[in-house]
């Protein structure tokens, strides 16, 4: 009996060690990725990323979109999982029954957690934010998710997702003091891109950082990907790719 117990403990320890190593591996892989943003605004939810074109910001369903970072293949897997789950639910019940809470709780989070804990399969290297636009900004839902299946609701209408969580927290604080509901789109975009540059270049986030000039901002050869979940449109499809999105 004692021998079996020791064997069990040993297997558990090996599993925990494997999970720990796996977490480190995923975080190391994600450290090369650049941040993505989602922001609840009076006109809708703005999603912003900088990538290769159709690589960071995507439409999921009528009222839903995702901004993600990580391995392109893994972003694609999560995107396809979300699109399939949303369309099946919308077809079997109705588009109103497709909610972000259910998508995240019953489809995406379990898929991410299973992938992360299946130690003999490659993990999904992806993190990001899902958005669901409502009638008013108070009805909007933003959910950040991580590679291990954990997710959390963003309560202040601003999501900054990065592998560097400390930098993401600082960026949120910096943005919160500068973003106003009446700020125009260029101002909002300038502020988000200023943070994108600072986080990508690992600069110290503080008062020395200024709003980026959209005409001259250096995106390192990548392209701006931006979309609006437009709450004002009468169309059932709220997603609208904005200029700059490839």
């Amino acid at each position: 009996m004692v021998g079996q117990g020791e064997e069990g403990m040993s297997e558990l320890f090996q599993w925990l060690e494997a999970i720990h190593d796996r977490g480190e591996y995923v975080r190391d892989q994600l450290s090369h990725a650049t941040p993505v943003f989602a922001l609840s605004r009076p006109e809708g939810i703005l999603l912003v990323g900088v990538g290769l074109g159709q690589s960071k910001v995507f439409e999921i369903y009528d009222r839903h979109a995702i901004a993600a970072l990580g391995n392109p293949v893994d972003i694609e897997k999560i995107r396809q999982t979300a699109i399939e789950a949303a369309h099946l639910e919308g077809f079997n019940r109705s588009p109103q029954d497709v909610t972000l809470r259910r998508l995240m709780s019953y489809s995406l989070s379990p898929a991410l957690k299973n992938s992360f804990e299946s130690v003999f399969q490659p993990p999904l290297i992806v993190e990001g934010v899902f958005a669901e636009v409502g009638e008013t900004p108070q009805d909007d839902v933003l959910m950040e998710f991580s590679h291990d299946g954990n997710f959390g609701v963003v309560h202040d209408g601003l999501a900054v997702v990065s592998s560097n969580t400390a930098a993401a927290t600082q960026a949120k604080d910096w943005l919160r003091t500068r973003l106003k509901p009446h700020s125009n789109r260029n101002r909002v975009l300038g502020l988000l891109l200023a943070m994108w540059q600072a986080m990508t270049n690992e600069e110290r986030i503080g008062n020395s950082i200024k709003c980026a000039n959209l005409e001259t901002v250096d995106l390192g050869g990548r392209v701006l990907e931006m979309a609006l979940l437009d709450r004002k449109t009468p169309n059932k499809v709220k997603y609208q790719a904005l200029a700059g999105n490839a």
Partner: peptide, 16 residues
Amino acid sequence: ARTLETSFEFYRRSQL
């Protein structure tokens, strides 16, 4: 009509 509507949107979103 409902099947087609879902199929067209599903294709557009998944295949970009």
